[in-house]
Design a protein around this nucleic acid. Sequence first.
DNA 1: TACAGTAGCTGAAACGGTTCAGCAACCGTA
DNA 2: TACGGTTGCTGAACCGTTTCAGCTACTGTA
Lengths: 346, 346
Amino acid sequence: MAERRVRLRDVAERAGVSVGSASQAFGRPELVSDDVRERVLAAAHELGYPGPDPAARRLRTGRAGAIGLIFSERLAYQFTDPASPPFLRGVSLAIQQAPTGLLLIPDSRQRDEATRLVREAVVDGFIVYSVPQNDPRVEAALARRLPVVTVDQPRGAETPFVGIDDRAAARSAAEHLRGLGHERVAVLSFVTTLEPGSTLQLDITVERLAGYEDGLGDAWDPALVRTCRPNAPEPARAATLELLREPSPPTAILAMSDILAFGALEAAGEHGVPVPSKLSVVGFDDTPGAAHATPPLTTVAQPHEEKGRLAAEQLIDAIERGGTREPSRTLLPTELVVRGSTAPPG
Amino acid sequence: MAERRVRLRDVAERAGVSVGSASQAFGRPELVSDDVRERVLAAAHELGYPGPDPAARRLRTGRAGAIGLIFSERLAYQFTDPASPPFLRGVSLAIQQAPTGLLLIPDSRQRDEATRLVREAVVDGFIVYSVPQNDPRVEAALARRLPVVTVDQPRGAETPFVGIDDRAAARSAAEHLRGLGHERVAVLSFVTTLEPGSTLQLDITVERLAGYEDGLGDAWDPALVRTCRPNAPEPARAATLELLREPSPPTAILAMSDILAFGALEAAGEHGVPVPSKLSVVGFDDTPGAAHATPPLTTVAQPHEEKGRLAAEQLIDAIERGGTREPSRTLLPTELVVRGSTAPPG
DNA sequence: TACAGTAGCTGAAACGGTTCAGCAACCGTA
DNA sequence: TACGGTTGCTGAACCGTTTCAGCTACTGTA
């Protein structure tokens, strides 16, 4: 079967014109006469020509018409994180303006498969979204010599950067609890490196821990820090139950995400500890569910959508300007949103 | 500035080998001697060669290494719909196996811009996700003569199809209310066509309306159908308030999405109508928030993630098999999840 | 020493377009 | 009639790879 693919050359031949004219008929119709254009289009139709091959056009013109998005975690997992949709919404807003496509690059179990995908992506630039330090995919992206914009982490990337001041944001949450009078404050943390002992460090975890420590001052107690993996309610629930069962349980909990905070609330309910009178909980992200939780969650709001939009806009801008540009650094504001899940220790 | 791009030819020259060998050194290292491979890699390093150009490779090999995803609505809006993340999670699961990239194709204000993006996408196939009938982007995708899989709608697509039986699912929700004894049942519906009077029909809306009618039987009253646009709580809230203010208000509401149902719950609260004792509400989708709503929402669960996974798997399969295949039709099961938002009329 | 077999390299032909210099034909004007 | 100016078409170069037929040089065996 598989009859030969129809090429522009075939169309030109059938229409009785040169391939050059045939190409114009599709790409720059104003350059050819009506007569030629119609003949070409008719021939294309008769032959079932699917239109100029994108790959070939790309090769010649040098523009891919898409930007690549490199995520931290497995792609599938990424879509369980409530922070992703607003971020992607922001990115979408920007690429609809261009307009340009968005290529999601999945992670893969094998590290080298993953970097291969980065090397082979047909894109004009990359957004690196919250990726650990020393991730080989970032190096692969940089090696492509295309414009790259980093979001959230890695912190030290030699590219334009868009993010928040995680340390200050975490500090504000901790100070809030401290101001209420809490002395025993536990922390539900993300992992600090992706695999134990690896160099794949997650900068924002480190930053936020530092911020919590800043804000808690002498109330900071490393023994009350629990690492939750993955970022889901269940591990947080388990960790919280464990904390509550201790001889002198914490009176407040700082969670690095709302998701973790939800797990904590769940555990408190199960254990019969009323929130906020006996236990205060602070989240991070201000996801849509936070306001509707019971009790409504006190949390640190950060502008996910804005991050996505700015990152994509900066990238598109860099692509259009032809790349080179000194690394800029955009830190967006965060805000502590005080709701019903925090109160003085009771 | 802009020193000339480094090509494989330059690397070969520097390493003192033919371009053929240089190509092998990258792509099929087992075919060249260690000596050549090392010389090539060293030369590449010295010259700052970013690796074989993906566009050129694609042209030559004929594989794009990515699949395209065509959404119904503006991309940005799409990420406000809670059904999208699980769907994308399913797609991600499948493409991580391959592995292959996922190109999101944004809609654009101008219709022709949008179809241009479809025509120019460097992909091996398309997933059409919940797109209206006669959408020109679907035609553009079909014209590419690449494998296409349709999800949800358009219903009549001449491609493999993955979806649910929307009519039966809606009927089950309506029958539930009917079984509880409700006589006056309102419906919060999606729009039926994208623009008023256009031929861009949304099949699932039509199907679900038919299902509601089936299930309600003689209790079906077209005057109690309200169209909510967009799919967001606010329009549903407004419509519900309006319904509740009528002389003889409905005792139950069928909503085409949980999002709409949430708006209805909100309105009921505002209007002082207790749910479920004075007003029953049924949603659709069983989104994560449904179980935690107050009261917990009775809703029709549908397997979004499964849809995404199956669609992507079928597409990848078709691509690997070289395309041709008779259109299959996969209808996934739905389930009415009865929670606390429905009760006999009181 | 002769010869078959193998490993490794070269060179050129695709892949399917876009772009552009150059040319032919035609127009209007003096 | 001569001539500058348009308009529209052709043909070929080029984009940067991969692939493969064919060649060379070497290895091992009889």
